[in-house]
């Protein structure tokens, strides 16, 4: 299987076409948006955190290539119900492994955009949100 066949496989296309939790997160307490200015990809992640640090809900929105959008969907699916400590422990390598398909260095950046966004989102409380004041650390 070539790199491209691996990349544009059904599992990834499914996440691109019918993403998990695309939209805005009800009762979001934390949110962050990142952009890859080189290609214009944008990912926004909104989280609803419980006082004990559990991720009650997680949504993404954005615009970009198949990789950045599918990886955001995969990441949301993985993180709902997890704890903040799990997010912090979830490394870039873990993200590439979750994505599954091998990627050239250039397109690894697309895959890691949602992961970077999430890592900042957990430290970015929503100012005017209905948040219950959870501070992750």
């Amino acid at each position: 299987m070539t790199l491209d066949d691996e990349l544009y496989q059904d599992r990834i296309l499914d996440h691109y076409e019918e993403p998990f939790h695309r939209g805005s997160c009800p009762g979001a307490t934390h949110a962050h948006e990142e952009e890859n200015p080189l290609c214009g990809d944008v990912v926004r992640i909104e989280l609803a955190l419980e006082p004990d640090g559990r991720i009650r809900d997680a949504f993404f929105d954005g615009e970009g290539c198949c990789i950045s959008q599918a990886s955001a969907s995969l990441l949301m699916e993985r993180m709902v119900g997890k704890h903040l400590d799990d997010v912090k422990r979830f490394s870039a390598e873990d993200m590439l492994e979750l994505f599954g398909a091998r990627l050239t260095p250039n397109r690894q950046k697309c895959c890691l955009l949602p992961w970077r966004t999430l890592q900042t989102a957990i430290f970015s409380p929503v100012e005017s949100g209905t948040g219950d004041g959870t501070k992750p650390d």
């Binding site: 491209d4 990349l7 544009y8 290609c39 970009g64 290539c65 198949c66 990789i67 397109r107 697309c110």
Partner: peptide, 13 residues
């Protein structure tokens, strides 16, 4: 609904 970077990568193939 197909992003330019995906098009370019698949054209490269």
């Amino acid at each position: 609904r197909i992003h330019a970077h995906d098009i370019a990568q698949l054209l490269d193939r």
